[in-house]
């Protein structure tokens, strides 16, 4: 249990700045017209080259557009991977927003637990026990929610799959 509920990765915050820049050194510049969106993406996020001015296309000038596009996509994917989910790193310092966030996570767990318990009692006629038990379980769920928000417990999917980037 301890291993799988272990801390989520926090090293991401540093890797972000380097990962963000899809650099102008990527060997894929000729395809501005073909892959407009992807190409524009590169252009937006870092390249200082004026748009439309092709850099030296290198040895791959003879390639057809489709192949180059797919290579571009692979290259972009490789560079994008190390970006962290900004949410945990970026969310922390916001005082008021953070308070609402954590408390809503906690309250929601309890509300749902109480709701489930109440409905169970109402339909199954199990006396007060459904409410009692599910209120306690809802409390536990609220605590889990909060710990996930704080990054002290891994998200469900990260817990099972080692995040080595091989999931695609």
């Amino acid at each position: 249990m301890a291993r799988h509920y272990g801390a989520a990765e926090f090293n991401g915050g540093l890797a972000g700045s380097s990962g963000l820049r899809v650099s102008n050194k990527a060997p894929v510049t000729g395809s501005l017209a073909a892959g407009s969106v992807l190409a524009r993406e590169m252009q937006l996020s870092g390249s200082e080259t004026p748009p439309g001015v092709p850099e030296k296309a290198g040895p791959e000038t003879a390639d057809d557009g489709a192949e180059r596009l797919s290579r571009l996509e692979a290259e972009l994917g490789k560079r994008r991977r190390p970006e962290p989910s900004e949410e945990k790193a970026g969310e922390r310092p916001q005082g008021w927003g953070f308070v609402v966030r954590v408390s809503s996570d906690f309250v929601a767990g309890i509300l749902v637990g109480a709701g489930v318990g109440y409905l169970l009692d109402h339909f199954a006629g199990t006396g007060p026990w459904g409410l009692i038990v599910f209120l306690l379980l809802g409390f536990a769920a609220g605590v889990i929610n909060v710990m996930r928000t704080l990054g002290m417990v891994a998200e469900p999917e990260k817990r099972n799959v080692p995040r080595d980037g091989s999931q695609q």
Binding site: A108, A141, I144
Partner: peptide, 13 residues
Amino acid sequence: VIEIISFLSRPIS
């Protein structure tokens, strides 16, 4: 059960 409640609480939170 706790995970299910936690999941159900997502839309609410």
